[in-house]
Design a protein around this nucleic acid. Structure first.
Lengths: 215, 215
DNA sequence: TAGATTGTTAATCGATTAACAATC
DNA sequence: TAGATTGTTAATCGATTAACAATC
């Protein structure tokens, strides 16, 4: 993969990274509408962002636009995909075959974006060896070996809070490089990527804003 | 409900609000361990935050601590719950009885926190009038009337991207005050609370960080 | 060329952190 | 009282926005 931001070397702010998927989505949409170029101004309008922020964001990786013309849609889409590493075919397993785990396993869309879900794991013997869609469910006691043997990159944890940290530790010792956590706890691991989906936190923020609105 | 931040009147920064659920979680945990007081320093250590940030955050709502002593755990927990309005028994419906929608409907934990899920809605006739757990599934054509009649506060949208905006609009016209969106699109609505769970965006940020780590 | 729009520097704004006086 | 820890002001840091020269 080409390395954007070759020379500057400065770490890009998280706030910037969080906006890239939105740019990516909008560029996919524009592409589907056969629009081949877009100005930072027009893009900003559709995303409710300042044009200058978009230019600033993109320029932390390189100059992808052209003065007087704007940005080439398909090209920029590909560049952002590359920056986000979403063409990498990351390998993922899901731990916890409860509601959330099964929902994730059925979420085929992920596969389109370069995420390959290999299997589910659970500690419930009644669940083990079942299939969800094309997805096998294995015993969680075999998780570490599976991660090692299959070079799993990402472990999605959709398990009760009290076992989340220990399963994260186990996964990392087995060689996983990222944890996608769905339990309402903070996971602490060194030198590993941790990304949280905190549904209850999100609902609480919503609740706060609702309270403010109706006050 | 008592009104914290009575006089100052300044809008509290979103970044602060997003930390409150973490404080809340940790305080619940401390309470379960029968710890009755905590200093900003100790709390900061367990959450990997600076003590001064916690004090600053809390002081945007009022002075809940005591010099030389710290903060009373149970009391502070209750205060934060109050600030977040999570004792309000908000009424919620879920639109879309697919993987995500069904997962949410089974997520009882929400109810403990003051969220009452009333029903699911779907446009698939085969789905309508089924039950998931204790949760009925209704035809989506009856959604607007249901929202009106039952004074639904929150509409969780777990439907395909292309119908998300129109269902949000419909829900708001019917009287809903908040949208909890699970589709990978930006929802635009005026004067309404919108909270997004963008699973793919989250995975993309994870992917970016993974790419950086393995580079 | 003239018009449009980028890339980039400088200014502003907001959020985090440090410092310390107040006080339990 | 002495020690601890808050509440709050001031300093720092980082992110957003404005401005404009460069250039397609």
């Amino acid at each position: 993969m080409k390395d954007y931001l070759c020379d500057k070397g400065k770490k890009v702010a998280d706030a910037v990274i969080r906006r890239l998927p939105r740019y990516y989505r909008q560029l996919c949409y524009l592409e589907s509408q056969n629009i081949s170029r877009i100005s930072s101004n027009a893009l900003g309008e559709s995303l409710d962002l300042k044009a200058t922020q978009i230019r600033q964001d993109l320029n932390s990786f390189g100059g992808f636009g052209q003065q007087g013309y704007g940005y080439p849609v398909s090209e920029l889409r590909d560049i952002i995909a590359d920056i986000l590493s979403i063409n990498s075919q990351w390998k993922m397993v899901i731990v916890g075959a409860g509601n959330i785990g099964r929902a994730l396993s059925g979420y085929d869309e992920f596969m389109l974006e370069g995420f390959q879900i290999l299997a589910l794991f659970d500690n419930d013997k009644a669940m083990v060896d079942k299939q969800f869609g094309r997805m096998p469910v294995y015993d969680v006691s075999t998780l570490a070996d599976y991660i090692k043997e299959n070079h799993v990159d990402i472990v999605a944890l959709a398990v009760p809070s009290r076992v989340t940290q220990s399963l994260a530790d186990l996964s990392i010792r087995a060689g996983a490089n990222a944890i996608w956590n769905f339990a309402p706890v903070d996971v602490f691991c060194d030198d590993v990527v941790v990304e949280n989906i905190h549904l209850t936190d999100s609902l609480m923020a919503l609740s706060y804003n609702l309270g403010q609105k109706l006050k």
